[in-house]
Design a protein around this nucleic acid. Structure first.
Lengths: 336, 336
DNA sequence: TTGAAAGCGCTAACAG
DNA sequence: CTGTTAGCGCTTTCAA
């Protein structure tokens, strides 16, 4: 049997109330008994039950993390940084990969509520609105990373996606590209829309429009990215550059180019987004827009914990600036 | 306030015991009241508190997963498959990235015990023996994926690492390579030792020894893999092939080769291990030994849940066969 | 400075 | 078939 607070109380010859107080550092206890109790807890290797204390209304010290897919390097990296900060603060993470499936989101939210998690961090797309509302009702703090729902009262940490798209496009335009195609993820996501909007803005600013400047919507995977890039590159007005709204899609484009025997960057420039592990590994290394993942993970966790501890006034929306990482997948368009 | 079993009981005009029984499907309840209670639970959107029921000795429906690093694609993929199976069975996963740091392992194990998780799945290296023993004492089921501790009573699912190493080496030998270097991860891990042993066995079997057949131990990362590969490739007896004990190290080798302007596979053949997402993305695509990750994740989860439910007799050690995936990073050694 | 006791939400005998 | 009741391990008044 696990040792309980009763065992400690008995061994120390005090009441469980006293033990509870020394555990939590509440009330006034004589240094004498405090030390004795502490010693005994050591000896008996006593660890208070989070379950029991949670039942009395205290924290469970666990946070739920909703992401589309843990096997996607971007989200794995986010999860890792969130987890790390959580550990530092004494909180664990329960992972929920939703595949952007609202049904699954709902299921996970139900689980998390039943387990009385202290808060939920969301990095997944089309969030089940009903589920979210039920969280608000039960006063479970919610925070977003990587995305945001403006109409919702919640903390959030994300990157300025518009600026990211703008920067990517400006880079290409600066190199002389005039036919730039965009491959984007689900346009229902605000992040996608913003990236595309930023890109368009740069194009218009430079007085470029129409022509090869298509926008294609794709599912976020290497395979789909490749498929769509192939379409683009074999179409009549094949672009000289592709801006892919995430690294996975960009890599798909790289593979498509190779299949068509186009050399990157000479025959085709490609810009990605996210700067995941993958961007440095493909050949050629990808020019990409970097999200400060480690920092973002850390910050959401900080925000939500402050919320949990009730040491926060209003909600905060933190918007960080993305950075363009120029590697070797972009250059001047070849004069044809 | 969240609705509790009392609210339901009151609304239905029955006792909480009755409600409890219909929730759990225990005891005999008239179809009439059962239906009435179910309806009311629906209406009031009642979800039983896992915390409370856990306190009475029932499951918490959460499993801990200890891995070295969630940001490493291999482990992210494992985590994803474990998570998926867990969801199907009604269990959540709490993620613990240990960086192979025994101290951190210990901390996580303590957390998990306090939260009364139903079981722990371990995929991390040099596991804190003391911590593991304490789990045994508290009868918390433990299962290993990807590795195993033979001296411990526990379920495990892994790949035959010896066979994997053997296959990788045989492939290279079959192509005509005689100078094969090995870059391995921490040799304290049984998996590493076995892979190397399998490789050596193939070498000896083919009557090859000494020469360029060095074994270098490295930290598992692209950078370190690259560093060690550079050393190898600039040494006197530069090998014609490298067997890297995981894809990360293999990719490091790829980068090293490129830096030295060696073309793969013509100047240097490289074989990896794990067949992660990365293997298909590097250029050239990596010949690698594949672990059936999805299946392994599913199986450990199944094993540990059986254990949790007490529907298991003894422990099981499942050993799967790895498969060599031949892509484009290997070929005949160039005649010099 | 310490302890008795009520209660958190639910389960599981045991009675009726 | 249904209800009473005693916990599960801990927190928190309120007294002493």
């Amino acid at each position: 049997m696990k040792t309980t607070i009763y065992d400690i109380a008995k061994a120390a010859g005090v009441s469980i109330a006293t033990v509870s107080k020394v555990i939590n550092g509440t009330g006034r206890i004589s240094t004498d008994t405090r030390e004795r109790i502490n010693e005994i807890m050591q000896e008996l290797d006593y660890q208070p039950s989070v379950v029991a204390s949670a039942l009395t209304g205290k924290s469970t010290f666990t946070i739920g993390l909703l992401i589309p897919d843990l096997a996607n390097p971007l989200y794995a990296e986010i999860a890792r940084s969130v987890e790390d900060r959580g550990r530092e603060l004494g909180f664990n993470l329960v992972m929920c990969s939703t595949d952007n499936n609202p049904r699954r989101e709902g299921d996970y939210i139900t689980f998390l509520k039943q387990k009385k998690v202290d808060g939920i961090i969301i990095s997944t797309g089309i969030s089940n609105e009903a589920g979210l509302k039920s969280l608000n009702l039960q006063r479970i703090p919610v925070a977003f990373v990587t995305r945001d729902i403006p109409t919702l009262e919640a903390d959030s940490v994300r990157v300025d996606d518009f600026a990211g798209g703008y920067r990517a496009a400006s880079h290409l335009i600066g190199l002389g590209h005039r036919h730039i195609a965009v491959v984007t993820e689900d346009m229902n996501l605000q992040a996608s829309r913003e990236r595309v909007r930023g890109c368009r803005f740069a194009l218009e600013e430079a007085g470029i429009e129409g022509g090869g400047n298509t926008v294609i919507e794709s599912v976020s995977s290497v395979e789909e990215g490749k498929r769509h890039a192939l379409e683009l590159l074999t179409s009549e007005h094949s672009p000289t550059a592709i801006f892919a709204c995430n690294d996975l899609l960009a890599i798909g484009a790289v593979q498509a180019a190779k299949e068509l025997r186009l050399t990157i960057p000479w025959d085709l420039s490609i810009v990605g987004f996210d700067n995941t592990l993958l961007a440095g590994i493909v050949d050629p290394p990808l020019t990409t827009v970097s999200q400060p993942i480690a920092q973002m993970g850390r910050q959401v966790m900080d925000l939500i914990i402050q919320e949990v501890r009730g040491q926060k006034h209003g909600k905060q929306r933190i918007v960080l600036t993305p950075e363009l990482i120029v590697r070797q997948s972009t250059t001047f368009p070849r004069k044809v």
